[in-house]
Simulated scan of single mutants.
Amino acid sequence: MTQPAPQPPLPAGFTPLAPGDPLAIGPFAVVGRIGAGGMGAVYGALDPSGGHVAVKVIHPKYAGDPAYRAQFAREAELLSRVDAECAPAFLGADPAAPQPWLATSFVTGRTLRRHVAAAGVLAGAELTAFAAGTAEALAAVHAAGITHRDVKPANIILSPEGPRVLDFGIARATDDTGEEQGLYGTPGWVAPERLDGRPATPAVDVFAWGGLVVYAATGHGPFGTGDSGTLLARTRAGRPDTEGVPEELRPLVAAALSAEPADRPTAAEALAALLDLAAAGAPGDPRGRLRALLAAAWHGFEGGRGAGPWIAAASLLSLSSAVAGGAGGAAGGLAAGGAAGG
Rank of each mutant, 00 (worst) to 15 (best):
G221T: 06
A282F: 04
V204P: 12
R198H: 08
E248P: 15
G308N: 05
D227T: 09
T225A: 12
P199S: 01
L316Y: 14
A233G: 11
G211Q: 02
D285M: 05
A272E: 10
G308L: 09
T218G: 08
A254H: 11
Y215L: 10
R287S: 12
R234W: 12
A314Y: 13
A191C: 05
A216T: 02
T266S: 13
G281Y: 02
A312D: 14
I311M: 11
L212V: 00
V245Q: 01
R239E: 14
A295C: 08
L293H: 09
A278Y: 03
G224W: 02
G211T: 01
W209V: 00
R198E: 13
L249A: 03
W310V: 08
R264V: 09
A237P: 10
G238H: 02
P246G: 07
G229P: 10
P265K: 03
F223L: 10
A237L: 11
A295Y: 07
L275M: 09
S228G: 14
A233T: 12
S315C: 12
A237G: 08
S228H: 14
Y215T: 11
R291E: 09
L271F: 01
A278E: 05
L290Y: 07
H299W: 12
A312G: 12
E269I: 03
G226R: 02
D227W: 10
A203F: 06
L316I: 13
A307Y: 10
A314G: 11
A292E: 13
A254D: 15
I311N: 12
S258Y: 03
S315D: 15
S320P: 14
G244H: 03
A273W: 10
P251V: 04
R291K: 12
G306E: 06
D227V: 09
